[in-house]
C-alpha cells in the first residue's frame, strides 16, 4: 500500500463517452438493484431520493433547430483530493473517519456502521454524489428476497454513495488470489454494474494505472501535477477527455469523453475568454 496512489497500487476509474450515452437510465437501475439502494413510494422529489448514479441532462442552450442534448451520468467521482493525496473533499472533513480513501484502490469508501449522519461530507462534495437516508429503507413485500447478499442495506440516518461496486472488487481479488496471482486482478474480472449494464457501451472501467487497460488508453492520464495548478494531478492527455470541475483540484477518477465542444465546456466554469485559450489543448495546458 502506498500513500501516493501512483505506483504499485490500483487506481480504479472510469471514462464515460457522452456521445454514446442515450440517457436511457440503465446504469441507474442496475446500480440500484446491485447495491440494494432503497427507494420511496413517491420518487418525484429528486432532492431526497437516493441515486448513487444519476443521469443529468445537458443542453447547449440554443433554441430549435439548433438545440442539442447530451446526458451525463454522475456516479461518485472517487476524488483523489488536492494533489491526489487521498484527501478527498468528503474524506478530509468527516469527523468520525466514516468515509475513507483506499490508497490501494483509489476508491472512496463509506463505513455505514460508523457514520453518525452529520452530513458534513454532503456539504463538501460539489458533485452531490452523497445521499442521506432520510427514511428507513423499505422494500415492497417479497422484494427483500431479491436483495443482493453481497451488499449490506443501510439504516436510516446515515449517508451512502457509489462504491464502484466494491463487493465486485472483493470478489475479483478473491478470484485472483485463488488463481495464485493475488496482485493482478484481470480487467474483465472487476467491472461495475453500471458499466456492464450500459447498452451502448458508453462506460469503460478499469485501472487508470495500468497501460494495458482500456480506460488508461482512452484517458492517458498525466501522472505529473499540472504545472499551472499543482492541486490537479492525472489530467487527461486526450483533448476530448475532461473531468467535472477539474479546476477545483478534487481530482476525480471519473472522466468524460465527447467530440462536442459545447459538452466539454460544460464540465467546468470558465471566465470570459478562458475557454478559447484552452479548448484545443485541453489535455496539455492547464486552465487553472
Amino acid at each position: 500500500m502506498t500513500q501516493d496512489n501512483h505506483n504499485n497500487a490500483y487506481k480504479f476509474g472510469m471514462v464515460i463517452d457522452l456521445d454514446k450515452c442515450t440517457g436511457c437510465g440503465s446504469c441507474m437501475v442496475s446500480c440500484m438493484s446491485e447495491n440494494n439502494v432503497p427507494f420511496k413510494e413517491d420518487e418525484s422529489n429528486k432532492r431526497d431520493s437516493i441515486t448513487w448514479m444519476r443521469v443529468y441532462k445537458l443542453t447547449n442552450g440554443k433554441s430549435f433547430p439548433d438545440t442539442e442534448i447530451a446526458y451525463l451520468p454522475r456516479p461518485c467521482q472517487h476524488c483523489g483530493g488536492e494533489g491526489d493525496h487521498g484527501h478527498s473533499p468528503c474524506v478530509s472533513v468527516c469527523p468520525a473517519t466514516a468515509t475513507d480513501y483506499g490508497y490501494d484502490t483509489g476508491i472512496v469508501s463509506q463505513i455505514y456502521t460508523r457514520c453518525f449522519g452529520c452530513r458534513y461530507c454532503m456539504g463538501a462534495c460539489p458533485y452531490h454524489a452523497r445521499y442521506f437516508n432520510w427514511w428507513d429503507p423499505k422494500w415492497p413485500e417479497g422484494m427483500e428476497k431479491y436483495l443482493s447478499p453481497d451488499v449490506s442495506p443501510r439504516m436510516r440516518g446515515i449517508v451512502e454513495k457509489c462504491s464502484f461496486c466494491y463487493h465486485r472488487y472483493q470478489a475479483a481479488r478473491d478470484k485472483a488470489y485463488y488463481h495464485g496471482d493475488k496482485d493482478h486482478i484481470k480487467e474483465e474480472d472487476y467491472q461495475t454494474a453500471c458499466t456492464t449494464a450500459c447498452p451502448s457501451n458508453a462506460i469503460t472501467f478499469g485501472d487508470l494505472n495500468n497501460p494495458a487497460h482500456k480506460v488508461h488508453q482512452i484517458v492517458k492520464p498525466d501522472p505529473h501535477p499540472d504545472p499551472r495548478n499543482h492541486h490537479v494531478v492525472g489530467k487527461s492527455r486526450n483533448p476530448k477527455v475532461f473531468r467535472l470541475l477539474e479546476r477545483l483540484g478534487t481530482n476525480p477518477k471519473v472522466y468524460y469523453l465527447s467530440e462536442r465542444e459545447w459538452v466539454r465546456k460544460q464540465g467546468d466554469h470558465y471566465l470570459e475568454g478562458e475557454w478559447d485559450k484552452i479548448k484545443n489543448h485541453h489535455g496539455t495546458t492547464s486552465h487553472g
Binding site: 484527501h87 478530509s92 472533513v93 468527516c94 469527523p95 468520525a96 473517519t97 466514516a98 460508523r114 457514520c115 453518525f116 449522519g117 452529520c118 452530513r119 458534513y120 442521506f132 437516508n133 439504516m155 436510516r156 440516518g157 446515515i158 449517508v159
Partner: peptide, 25 residues
C-alpha cells in the same frame, strides 16, 4: 441534527483529527 444521535460519541471515539468538525466537538 445528527442522523444517528446514539452514535454521537463516534466523533470522539473515531476522531478524524483532520476534520474541523472534530475540533469543534
Amino acid at each position: 441534527d445528527i442522523g444517528q444521535p446514539l452514535r454521537g460519541w463516534f466523533i470522539f471515539w473515531h476522531a478524524n483529527i483532520h476534520s474541523m468538525l472534530t475540533e469543534v466537538a
